[in-house]
Design a protein around this nucleic acid. Sequence first.
DNA 1: CAGAGGATTCAGTTGTTTGTGAATAGAGTA
DNA 2: TACTCTATTCACAAACAACTGAATCCTCTG
Lengths: 155, 155
Amino acid sequence: MAAFIETFGATLTAAGMQRLVSRVIALMLTDDDGRMTAAEIGTALRVSPAAVSGAMSFLHGYGFVTKERQPGSRRDVYVLQTDTWHDVTLQKAAMIGHLVDQITGGIDAVGGPDTPAGRRLAYSAEFYRFIAGEMDKLITGWDQRRSELRQRHPA
Amino acid sequence: MAAFIETFGATLTAAGMQRLVSRVIALMLTDDDGRMTAAEIGTALRVSPAAVSGAMSFLHGYGFVTKERQPGSRRDVYVLQTDTWHDVTLQKAAMIGHLVDQITGGIDAVGGPDTPAGRRLAYSAEFYRFIAGEMDKLITGWDQRRSELRQRHPA
DNA sequence: CAGAGGATTCAGTTGTTTGTGAATAGAGTA
DNA sequence: TACTCTATTCACAAACAACTGAATCCTCTG
């Protein structure tokens, strides 16, 4: 199981996430009730409380985890929000629209759409525009698929 | 135009590419005939020949650029392969299938699909499986769209 | 309000990228 | 073969990222 955490974490890191953040997600995915304290996380991953604090702050900022505290306790309990994680993954992919704008802006910089460079940029813009469009469909599609799954397996 | 190169390059870097590699792509996109020598690239981006060599070696390895040499010359001319760049971008996205396998493998590690953690992993696997499937469709879709574009604007 | 458990912040350490300069190798010309 | 122009390689430096340890802050209990 430790193997899964490190392997999967490494893959997420390769996809651009900070290392410890990736490992925390992998860890919490494997935790039975998905609820963990900072101390538990630190022990499991062999990192200092300071490092855990930083990672959790990041995760909390994006809503990947929520933070709870039992009345009469001083320790925070973090709860993994699987759906939020998925949503953010999709939104990140949707940022491709950004590229389209940048490339389109570049067309003027190289002398307009009737220059060789302009044509090349327009072609690449077309590529990213296509992807962005498909991404939008994908997001809608997942929303629907998720509903179907929920009907069969109510959370 | 220098602004476009740096801005767009930074975006590619944020997407996980090495910095200089990103800048070279942005630069070559804006070059009129898309053909440049190492010296031109080094001058434009203010980096050493050594750095250019490293970046071009990477780009050539993935087929992002081809390397030509005029008979009787000692300098290589690099030519940006826009389509290859697009294709590799898509293939990279298709690597999501890898995640599905890892997660599926993790289900056993946490005690099978009937444990809480197993169910959570299965759900995430379902998410990535969905995306991987849509990515396959997207790749096919772009192939087709590209053909259409080519009919109207023969390269 | 004092004390203790726990979270957070920050300066400093370690490790990883990214790029440079100098030396080396390749390829063409004479 | 000797000479020159480029490309490549490699050891090192600078910039950046990821952690740690110690100090600080917050919050609950007595």
